[in-house]
């Protein structure tokens, strides 16, 4: 049985600047990283592998260099990887992305039963948190979002029990398998790759599925299949802070000023 981990390669956003003139992201020279939220999804799938013997397949849609990210997944312990890459997949919004990913999972499920699909809660470049739910809806899987713990999985009874972390409370939810589980960053601490695995990953085969393979209707994928359009990207105005006191030479006074101001603004109740 499979655990499919969906990972995305994203620009290291802390290093991305917005072009002040065109309003677009300057991606040049910015290194790519695996979406930090997705590292937790991958880790959770690897833990399911350790706990229940599931086979882990990491999938990703992106340009050909996404292969690097998938190799990282292999180094961490994924058994297989599928790269969904084709010109016509480019420029996709969450709707079109979930389309391709869902179809890929469907293809995987034809070969081997899928127990769970794991997604990160959101990405750091898009921040929409829609792709996971999109996949679940398209595939008709149980949809479990904001999961910070997978309590138990019963593969024969096809049941999973998870803990969802909501704003003010946690809830324990049971759902039938297959399920799409979107995990939060608190779900786990991702492991670190061992060198022999890294070396093995360096020349392992990353399966490529392009649209010749997938045969999806070009109207439903990529830019054409997207319903959202980015009109403008800009950095939100940030209210300028003010400097209160001198914390370095007089920390006590500075602390008093700070607490006073917080009470004044109603942010602190004593």
């Amino acid at each position: 049985m499979l655990a499919v981990a969906c990972v995305k390669q994203v620009p290291d956003t802390t290093q991305v600047k917005v072009d002040p003139v065109t309003g677009t992201l300057i991606r040049e020279g910015v290194p790519f990283i695996i979406n930090p939220f997705d590292t937790h999804a991958l880790e959770e799938s690897l833990r399911l592998k350790d706990r229940y013997g599931l086979r882990v397949v990491a999938i990703s849609m992106g340009p050909p260099n996404t292969e690097v990210t998938l190799r990282k997944a292999l180094a961490l312990g994924a058994d297989d990887t599928v790269l969904l890459s084709d010109r016509v997949f480019g420029g996709a919004d969450t709707l079109a992305t979930s389309m391709v990913l869902a179809e890929a999972i469907r293809r995987l499920a034809r070969e081997e039963e899928v127990a769970v699909v794991l997604c990160g809660r959101q990405t750091i470049d898009g921040d929409t948190a829609q792709v996971g739910p999109g996949i679940a809806t398209r595939l008709g899987y149980s949809q479990l979002t904001l999961v910070d713990r997978i309590e138990e999985m019963d593969l024969s009874a096809k049941q999973v029990r998870v803990r969802r972390k909501l704003r003010t409370r946690s809830e324990i939810v049971a759902a039938p398998l297959p399920a799409m589980i979107a995990v939060t960053r608190e779900a786990n601490r991702p492991r670190y790759p061992r060198v022999p695995m890294r070396l093995a990953a360096e020349d392992a085969v990353v399966t490529l599925w392009d649209n010749q393979e997938m045969k999806l209707d070009e109207e439903t994928v990529g830019l054409k299949g997207s319903t959202t359009q980015v009109r403008r990207i800009f950095s939100p105005e940030r209210a300028k802070g003010e400097i209160l006191g001198d914390g370095l030479s007089n920390p006590e006074e500075a602390a008093q000023l700070l607490v006073g101001r917080l009470i004044e603004k109603g942010l602190l109740n004593l």
Binding site: D12, P31, I33, R189, R191, Y192, P193, R194, V195, P196
Partner: peptide
């Protein structure tokens, strides 16, 4: 411990990742 076992005090994982990424 690091290369074969990936076992080390937990604060090192961020250090190692920062080194690799940044």
């Amino acid at each position: 411990l690091v290369e074969m076992q990936a076992r080390f005090p937990e604060e090192l994982i961020t250090f190692f990742e920062h080194m690799e990424q940044r």
